[in-house]
Amino acid sequence: MTDKRYYIAYGSNLNVPQMRMRCPHATILGTANLKGWELLFKGSKTGSYLTIEECEDGTIPVVIWEVTALDEAALDRYEGFPHFYYKRDIKLQYKGIRTGKRRTVTAFAYIMHEERPIGIPTNFYMRTCLEGYTTFHFNKNILIDAYNKCLEVCGYEE
């Protein structure tokens, strides 16, 4: 049994400098499209953050990281596991950053408890996520659409 696991990042953990600080032993393996899921901003009194929820026609760009047990413990603390986010194993195929080869793995994602209310993230959090989208050449409209959808739900005009 290895102490390394695969982790699906879709929000602020796409930000490589931030992940390097939090999880110094983590390695970027590749990118994938998580089909059947959508992004939403949800939260609590401390703020709104990204989560994923199943959605038949949704697709989210993600990064697959290989993490050690220590990295996973740091992520658990950061994500407020198990009270704020829970973990779910998801099988998906990623494309290797270095090799370009496709590989199917089971990786864990943090998912915010569904009863949390839709909310609006801070500009800082949004910028952090956008930097990750830029790094991996992801379509920023996916993130912006999630933001606009949450604005609408919260009753804000675009």
Rank of each mutant, 00 (worst) to 15 (best):
G155P: 03
C55H: 08
G30E: 06
I28A: 06
L39Y: 03
S44A: 11
T27K: 12
T59F: 06
E66T: 14
Y110A: 01
A69L: 09
D76H: 03
V67Q: 05
Q93E: 15
K4A: 13
P61M: 10
A146T: 10
L130S: 13
Y86L: 11
Y147K: 02
I90W: 02
M1E: 12
Y147A: 04
R5N: 12
I120D: 00
Y133W: 08
L75D: 01
F136D: 08
E114S: 14
A74N: 13
K4Y: 14
K95G: 02
R116H: 15
A26E: 04
L92G: 11
L92P: 13
N33E: 15
E79L: 03
K140S: 15
T51H: 10
K87W: 05
K101D: 11
L29S: 05
G11R: 09
L70V: 11
P24V: 06
F81Q: 03
R22Q: 11
S12K: 01
I28H: 02
T51L: 06
F108L: 10
Q93C: 11
L14G: 03
C55T: 05
K87R: 13
M126R: 11
T51I: 11
H25L: 05
G100Q: 10
T2E: 07
N139T: 00
M126K: 08
D71Y: 04
C154N: 07
K87H: 10
M19C: 07
V153T: 08
R77P: 01
I120F: 01
E56D: 14
H113R: 13
I144L: 13
Y10C: 02
T46N: 04
R98A: 12
K45Y: 10
E53F: 09
I52E: 09
R127S: 09
S12G: 09
L39W: 01
L70Q: 13
Q18R: 12
